[in-house]
Computed example of a mutant assay.
Amino acid sequence: MASIPSPSSAGVSARMSKQRRRDTAPEISVRKLLHARGLRYRVAWPIPGLKRRSVDIAFTRAKVAVFVDGCFWHSCPEHATRPAANDTWWAEKLAKNMARDAATNEHLQQAGWRVVRIWEHEDPSEAANRILKEVTRSRAEH
Rank of each mutant, 00 (worst) to 15 (best):
H121N: 08
E141H: 10
M98D: 14
Q109P: 02
P48D: 14
S54E: 14
F59W: 03
C71N: 11
E126F: 02
A103C: 07
R42H: 13
V30P: 03
D101C: 10
L94K: 05
W73S: 04
F72W: 06
K93W: 06
M98Y: 00
D69K: 04
H79E: 11
A140C: 04
V30N: 01
P5V: 05
V12H: 00
R15A: 14
R40P: 04
A99I: 11
A36N: 15
R42W: 11
R100V: 09
S29Q: 14
E106C: 12
H35M: 03
L34R: 07
I4P: 00
W90E: 05
V115E: 02
A14S: 13
V64G: 07
E120K: 04
S17W: 01
P46Y: 07
D56G: 06
R61N: 11
W90D: 05
A58V: 08
K96M: 10
V64P: 05
A80Y: 14
H142P: 00
D23I: 01
H107D: 12
E27W: 05
D123P: 04
P46V: 10
K133M: 07
F72C: 06
P83L: 12
N129E: 15
A128R: 05
R22L: 02
H121K: 05
A140H: 14
H142F: 06
V135F: 01
V116D: 01
M98K: 15
D101Y: 10
L33W: 05
R100G: 13
K18D: 04
N105P: 03
P48S: 14
W89M: 03
E126R: 13
N97R: 09
D123G: 03
D23E: 14
E126W: 03
H74I: 07
A2G: 13
W90N: 04
Q109F: 00
N129V: 11
A80M: 07
K63D: 06
D23T: 03
I118S: 09
F67Q: 14
W119D: 12
I131V: 14
E134S: 10
E120N: 05
I28D: 00
G112N: 13
G49A: 12
A80F: 15
H121L: 02
H107L: 14
D123H: 07
K93P: 08
N86W: 08
A44G: 11
S138W: 01
A127W: 04
L132R: 10
E106A: 15
R20A: 01
S54H: 13
A58T: 07
D101N: 15
D56P: 03
K133I: 11
A99R: 15
C76I: 09
